[in-house]
Design a protein around this nucleic acid. Sequence first.
DNA 1: TTGTAGGCGTTATCAG
DNA 2: CTGATAACGCCTACAA
Lengths: 351, 351
Amino acid sequence: MTDEARPSKASRASTGHSSGRATIAMVSQLAGVSPSTISRVLNGTAAVSELKTQAINAAIAKLGYVPNPVARGLAGGRTMSVGVVTQAVDSPFYGAALHGIEVELDPAGYRPLFISGNWNADAEANCIDMLRSRHVDGIIVLTGRLSDRALKAHAKDVPVVVTGRTLNAPGLYSLNFDNREGARLATHNLIQLGHRNIGFIAGDRLHPDANERHEGYRAGLKEAGIPYDPTLVVHGEFHEISGMIAVDRLLQSKKVITAIFAANDQMAFGAALALRRRSLRVPDDISLVGFDDVPGAQYASPPLSTIHQPAYELGRLAAASMLQLLAGNEPTAVVPAPRFIARESTRPAPG
Amino acid sequence: MTDEARPSKASRASTGHSSGRATIAMVSQLAGVSPSTISRVLNGTAAVSELKTQAINAAIAKLGYVPNPVARGLAGGRTMSVGVVTQAVDSPFYGAALHGIEVELDPAGYRPLFISGNWNADAEANCIDMLRSRHVDGIIVLTGRLSDRALKAHAKDVPVVVTGRTLNAPGLYSLNFDNREGARLATHNLIQLGHRNIGFIAGDRLHPDANERHEGYRAGLKEAGIPYDPTLVVHGEFHEISGMIAVDRLLQSKKVITAIFAANDQMAFGAALALRRRSLRVPDDISLVGFDDVPGAQYASPPLSTIHQPAYELGRLAAASMLQLLAGNEPTAVVPAPRFIARESTRPAPG
DNA sequence: TTGTAGGCGTTATCAG
DNA sequence: CTGATAACGCCTACAA
């Protein structure tokens, strides 16, 4: 039923393969108009008489003509593709963002070209070079480590949208999630539940997000008048094992701890497992809060309370902004504020 | 202004590349050789004298020349990109596979062009059309719903690698993971632990994998002489909620059940949560086994026993096979056999 | 408003 | 072995 369902396309001659075969020259002949005029109606480059426009559109429809992006790219026009520098195609977080980008770009006819930078500034620079050699029409950088300067430089040649930082420049738009506020919120909620001895599993120091979240933790403590105790803070590297190790360290310190806030969900999962190994129950013995709200958080045992980071949405916004930039408009997207999602890994502090 | 902004080009130590500004014409001039000859050494299209070859290579290095893939594509040569039709960029499983593809393709100079088919045959057909209009050099289809016939037809024009089915044709290579054997293995292991009343949470009937896994469950039962009881089987749709609902249904039947085998990890997580809600403990009261071994399985609470499906590896193998096809060789990749990963969600049956 | 001519950077097809 | 000479399919002056 896959193929039979498309008799119109199947009936077309040649290879039996549909799109992309017809060229502008063929349309030109069928419509009795010069190729340039066709290009004009296609790109809205100049006004074309109503009559010819119709003839052209008819011919295009009849031939099932679709412009060849490759030729377009060579000719200096648009490739209809936007490069996306991500950090890891796997990773629940980036995966969702990429999905959002794809969904938003698609109806506009653009295709994303994903490429992983692997948290490495040099690699990212290469990625961008590669994307530019491929003539992408725009570049979206998801939380890269590239310098602001480099980004601005690229923005002079091609529209750039970057997430994870705030940066203004012509042809450049940035979308920044408020990590600090998110972490403050998490801490605040724990405090509201009566917790005062809150362990913090921080992220990789080299990671900007990690530092912002750390700040947010301190801010949350401060506004409640709780002194910041460095011995309650352990640094991890954003993956599960870090969370497990962190819990061991936290518990070794013999300090009283009734809650733990991990700088991302993955470390929170690791922490949950480590606690389980020590027969400490979440949330009965210790409350636990994560950050990101990855897909798995909702169905973890117990479901993890966390700060929701709108990854999918962020992807869509980044793509939408790119589309606006491409259209010569000023992007207007605003990143949603962090939200605390109360699930079952938190409960009021004892006493 | 574009170029002045990059004074550090030479100072970039390691990769020392510069973005593809230099053209073949420039190399031609510097080396005192015709463009065609340069193309020849670049593609190994024909033998070139040692002397000129060196001059050319020197010029290329000096100019930091990198061929323009777009122009290449137009000229009928290779685009150096291979299309990848996946089902969902997010999804831990496909994410890992995509990563594997990217890693394997990269050193060969090829770039993957990802596009999601969203489990829809028509959408997949469009994806492929789009990829072809973009002149990709090859197409990798990850477990699509496209008909075998359609795939074979495409393989006539461009190399195709497909996973999730077994299919032979010229220019086409398939990589199939043995789902049936994996499910048999899971069932077998549960039986080895003494379980005889094993509930099965099956997957979406429309999904080939689901049916194969269902068969494997039956095979495992049969080889142990345990009769297949349809009331112990509930169909889900491969996501967590399905797992939760399935557990409810399974428990309502009032049958004795000491273990549950879910056709994928996500449903297993859902099942774990539903059991928790009913105060049934895993594995103390009920053993649980999943399928896929997604990244989160290892750090779930408790860590989930499951069948390891080598997603990353599969991606690499698919890409490697594509590279072989592209080189005109016969692929030789073989998918690793399923393995049962014993973790902490299973234990011997009571009694 | 429209057509013509040239070029984008490579590869392929010819002759030598 | 090597160099001209066409394409590839489209866009953008320039001219009409």
